[in-house]
């Protein structure tokens, strides 16, 4: 500090040095250094030790080397910057349509699988993790709208070996006699898919997302219909958002369109633009026993502008054992509430809608109305109160048509006991 404060300092000019005599023997190299230290030498001393080269020539070599090194360093920076641009979390999206016209109560998105991409419908499911698609040859495949995916026609399809860490991420991995990893997923409705675990490229409109773990299902049975497979959007380690999250800043959204066949498709979006500015937010809760589901805190429900007294936060509490709670699921059609909450909500709605003509029950719905011949009716409002976010539902989200004769039902249900 004191030297820096002086206006001048002493400089002793010396001309270009000759290379030092570099020690030739291993013993001589180790002599001066303790076991915890290593010698550090100038490269010229090593390469030109004893050489009959002029100091001027060596200095030119050094400057030339230096120029090459600077060029390489600069190129590395330029390359990294370019890589950042192409690898930066870019937004991408694909369309969302109701699966109703294809016989499904779920929502479909259309994405490309493989290289070149084959565009297929996939179920959009926030309630499960594994991404899978029906694959030929089929041991058993259900009927789907698009041709069944043939992995042999894709240059990016890669089977996962049994020893791979990716295989071990499965809950119950299997292994075939070719040492290829096998997956199986069973769903709550009894449906299941079994096949070879692989990695593949998915394409969202024009954006390719490489190396996504994908179940290549050769045996797919149950209630699947229409779609070629399922895009697992859950929170677990094998879901699409977990695998590709760094690509899109771990933000995604969807809008589920009206179920009528004439409705325009909407979109599922990945990236910063996925989060709408006029959103109201509720914290995401975690179940330490189960990482797949998106839990949120439901604190109450209002009907006709008043809180339903029997619908209390305790009915929706996620307890420390991992039981209870409320999840948000794009793969379940009708909202299920714990039985006491449902009964209180339903009774409050019936009171508010006393002026409407009741109709017979339908399927799991026990509160239906005959609205035939009516062009407009007044119905009580329903508001879901989440922690920090009140969500007022449009009437079409809780009074749904169940036949063509004007019967509409209150589209909530109670959870079954047992």
């Amino acid at each position: 500090a004191s030297a820096a404060a002086l206006p001048f300092q002493t400089f002793s000019p010396t001309s270009l040095p000759r290379p030092l005599a570099f020690p030739e023997s291993e013993e001589a190299l180790q002599e001066d250094y303790s076991p915890a230290s290593l010698g550090l030498f100038h490269v010229d001393d090593v390469y030109y030790s004893g050489a009959d080269a002029s100091p001027e020539l060596l200095f030119q070599f050094r400057l030339r080397r230096d120029a090459i090194r600077v060029r390489d360093l600069s190129a590395a920076v330029v390359e990294a910057a370019a890589r950042n641009v192409s690898g930066r979390a870019r937004d991408f999206s694909s369309s969302v349509t109701s699966g109703l016209s294809q016989g499904s109560g779920e929502y479909f998105t259309r994405i490309g699988i493989g290289t070149p991409p084959r565009y297929v419908y996939m179920v959009l499911d926030t309630g499960s993790d594994v991404v899978w698609i029906q694959c030929s040859p089929c041991t058993k495949c259900y009927s789907q709208t698009d041709p069944v995916f043939d992995p042999r026609a894709s240059t990016s399809f890669l089977g996962v070996s049994c020893a791979s860490p990716l295989c071990r991420r499965l809950d119950s991995p299997g292994c075939n006699n070719r040492q290829k990893c096998l997956y199986q997923v069973s769903y709550g409705d009894g449906s299941f898919t079994v096949g070879e675990f692989s990695t593949e490229t998915l394409t969202f409109r024009r954006t390719r997302v490489d190396n996504i773990a994908l179940g290549c299902g050769h045996d797919n049975e149950g209630l699947f219909v229409g779609a070629a497979g399922l895009l697992g959007l859950g929170r677990g380690k094998l879901s699409f958002p977990t695998q590709a999250g760094p690509r899109f800043g771990r933000k995604f959204s969807y809008c589920l369109v009206d179920r009528s066949a004439t409705a325009m498709p909407s979109s599922v979006m990945f990236g910063d633009s996925a989060v709408s500015r006029n959103s109201v937010f509720t914290p995401l809760l975690t179940n330490p026993k189960l990482d797949t589901f998106y839990y949120i805190g439901l604190t109450g429900i209002s009907v006709g502008g008043s809180r339903v007294p029997g619908v209390t936060p305790s009915l929706f509490k996620l307890d420390s054992s991992g039981a209870g709670g409320v999840i948000i699921d794009s793969g379940t059609s009708v909202t299920r509430l714990t039985r006491p909450a449902y009964v209180a909500l339903r009774d409050a709605f019936r009171i508010g809608a006393y002026h409407l003509n009741r109709a017979p029950d339908f399927s799991l719905f026990d509160t239906c109305y005959d609205l035939s011949g009516k062009t407009e009716v007044k119905v009580p409002t329903v508001v879901l109160h989440f922690e920090g976010a009140d969500v007022s539902l449009p009437a079409s989200n809780y009074l749904i048509p169940v036949d063509t004769s004007g019967r509409f039902c209150f589209a909530f249900a109670g959870t079954m006991s047992g």
Partner: peptide, 30 residues
């Protein structure tokens, strides 16, 4: 367990902001 199903989510843009651990609802999001 209670489940918010897809009929009740219709018309909302439902966003999953996993970086900030929150779920958002935007009406008329389609």
């Amino acid at each position: 367990l209670s489940i918010i199903g897809n009929i009740q989510q219709q018309g909302f843009r439902v966003s999953f902001d996993l970086a900030s651990n929150r779920v958002g609802f935007a009406p008329r999001g389609c």
